[in-house]
C-alpha cells in the first residue's frame, strides 16, 4: 500500500530561531491507520502537524500528501481537501452562529453543490454524535461538543486524513472521552487516517502506532505495547508511561508475570484476574 503521507528527511527552522524545530525527520503514514504522536514541549510535534497540510512547508526535504508535493502551490487546495486539522482551542475554530452553518462553511467555500453540502453536513454531524445539536448556537456548547463540531467541519470536506493537535488539552474528562471516541470511530469505521498529537499517554494506547519525537526527530516508533514497555527511555524524553503499565511494572517487580501490553484499564484488570486465579 502506498503511504498517504510521505515525509522525506525534512527540516524546518522558525524565522528568527537558531535551532531547527524539525531536524531531518523521515516518516511514512499508511492510509486508514491511527497514529499517536508524543513528545515533550518543544520536541516538534505541532510543527510536524502543520507540515501535514502545508500550513508550513519544509526548509529542506519534501512532504508528499497522496503523492502531491506540499511546496508546489498549485497543489495547495487539493492537499487541504485531503488533510483536515483540528486544534487545541475550540473557541478559535468556530465561524458561524449555527452549528450546521459552521460545518457547511468549508464545503461551501470549496464550491460543493448545495444538495451535496446538505448530505455531507448531516452525515458529518451524525458521525460525531452532534446531529441533534445542528440548530444550536456553537458558543453555548461544551468544549467537547465544540471540538466535535470542529471535527464535523473537517469531515464535511470529505478528507482522507484528520490531524488533531492536542484536541483535548482544554477539555474536561467527558469532553476528552467524546472527542477521542469520535476520532477512533472515524478511523475504524470510515477508514480515515488519524494523526493524534497529545501529551496524555492514555490517549495514545488505542492507536495502531505511537511516534515519540525528540528535538525534531523521531526517537521511538512502534506499536503502543512496544513503546510503553520502555519506561526508562520515555522518562529520559520527559514522558511517562500509562498508569496501567506503571502498575504492571510494579507487580512484575514483586514477582507477578503480567504482560506489559495490557494497556487499557480493562485489559489490565483482566490480566490481573487471570494471574490471581
Amino acid at each position: 500500500m502506498d503511504p498517504i503521507i510521505r515525509i522525506n528527511n525534512i527540516s524546518y527552522t522558525y524565522p528568527g530561531s537558531d535551532k531547527p524545530a524539525l531536524d531531518g525527520l523521515t516518516l511514512d503514514i499508511l492510509p486508514g491507520t491511527f497514529t499517536a504522536v508524543l513528545g515533550s514541549n518543544g520536541s516538534g510535534k505541532s510543527t510536524l502537524a502543520k507540515h501535514l497540510n502545508a500550513i508550513l512547508t519544509p526548509s529542506a526535504g519534501k512532504v508528499y500528501v497522496d503523492g502531491m508535493d506540499t511546496t508546489d502551490e498549485g497543489n495547495l487546495l487539493a492537499i487541504r481537501r485531503r488533510v483536515g486539522m483540528v486544534f487545541q482551542n475550540p473557541d478559535n475554530q468556530i465561524v458561524a452562529n449555527v452549528v450546521e452553518d459552521d460545518v457547511a462553511f468549508a464545503p461551501e467555500n470549496l464550491g460543493v453543490e448545495p444538495h451535496e453540502i446538505r448530505r455531507r453536513v448531516d452525515a458529518a454531524l451524525r458521525q460525531v454524535g452532534m446531529y441533534e445539536f445542528r440548530m444550536h448556537a456553537p458558543h453555548l456548547l461544551s468544549g467537547g461538543q465544540k471540538q466535535r463540531v470542529a471535527i464535523a467541519g473537517v469531515l464535511a470536506m470529505d478528507p482522507e486524513v484528520l490531524v488533531l493537535d492536542e484536541p483535548t488539552a482544554m477539555l474536561d474528562p467527558r469532553g476528552r472521552r467524546e472527542v477521542l471516541a469520535a476520532a477512533e470511530s472515524l478511523c475504524r469505521e470510515r477508514g480515515i487516517t488519524v494523526v493524534l498529537i497529545t501529551h496524555h499517554m492514555d490517549e495514545a494506547i488505542r492507536a495502531d502506532r505511537v511516534l515519540v519525537l525528540d528535538k525534531g526527530r523521531i526517537a521511538l516508533d512502534g506499536a503502543p505495547g512496544e513503546i510503553f514497555s520502555q519506561t526508562a527511555a520515555l522518562e529520559a524524553l520527559r514522558l511517562t508511561v500509562p498508569e496501567t503499565t506503571a502498575l504492571i511494572t510494579r507487580l512484575n517487580a514483586a514477582g507477578m508475570r503480567l504482560p506489559t501490553t495490557a494497556l487499557t484499564d480493562e485489559a489490565c484488570a483482566a490480566a490481573i484476574m487471570e494471574a490471581l486465579s
Binding site: 467527558r174 502498575l247 484499564d265 489490565c268
Partner: peptide, 29 residues
Amino acid sequence: IGLDLPAPAHIAKLLRERGLDLPAGIYTL
C-alpha cells in the same frame, strides 16, 4: 457528572466488578 476516576481507582473498580475482594478507598498506584 462528566468526571473520571484516577486510573488506579478505576482499575480497582473493574477488579471488584470481576469479583476481587479489594478494600475500599483505593485511589493511588
